[in-house]
Simulated scan of single mutants.
Amino acid sequence: MEATFNPPQLPTFVPTGLATAVSTPLPTPKNNVAAELPPPTITPQPIATTTVTQLPTSTPTATLTPTPISPCSKRIPQDDLFTIVTQTYGLSREYAPQDLVLLTDYLPVDVTLGFPTELRQIALQPLIQMIADMQSAGLQPRILSGYRSYAAQAISWDKWNREEPERAAILSARPGHSEHQLGTTVDFGSPELAGIVGIPDIQFHTYFYQTSEGVWLAQNAHRYGFTLSYPRGALEMTGFYYEPWHFRYVGEEMATLLLDLEMYLTEYQLLNQPEPCIP
Rank of each mutant, 00 (worst) to 15 (best):
Y249R: 00
Q181R: 10
I42M: 10
I278E: 06
Y242K: 04
A132R: 13
H205D: 12
K30G: 10
L259P: 01
I131G: 03
L55F: 08
G214C: 07
I76C: 09
L127R: 04
T50H: 06
T53L: 14
T24G: 01
A173Y: 00
Q203E: 14
T112V: 12
T67E: 13
L119E: 05
L259V: 15
S23F: 14
Q45M: 08
W245K: 02
P279K: 04
V14M: 06
P71T: 08
S145C: 09
S156R: 12
S92Q: 05
I69Q: 03
E275H: 02
A234S: 15
L261V: 14
E262P: 00
P108Q: 06
T59M: 07
N6P: 13
A218T: 04
L119H: 04
H180K: 07
L261D: 01
G195H: 00
P29S: 07
F5W: 07
D105G: 07
P7K: 05
P56C: 08
P200L: 11
T51W: 00
K74S: 15
T184K: 02
C277K: 08
L235T: 04
W160G: 00
T20P: 11
P108W: 03
A169L: 08
N220Y: 13
D79N: 14
E118A: 07
T59G: 06
E252I: 13
H180Y: 03
P25F: 02
A137R: 04
I76D: 09
S229G: 10
E275V: 15
G183E: 05
R248K: 15
M254N: 11
V14Y: 00
A35H: 08
R232M: 10
L139A: 05
P25H: 03
L107M: 11
A21T: 14
D133G: 03
Q98C: 10
V85N: 06
Q9C: 10
H205R: 06
S73P: 01
H180S: 12
L103N: 08
L81K: 02
Y147W: 09
D79S: 08
G138L: 07
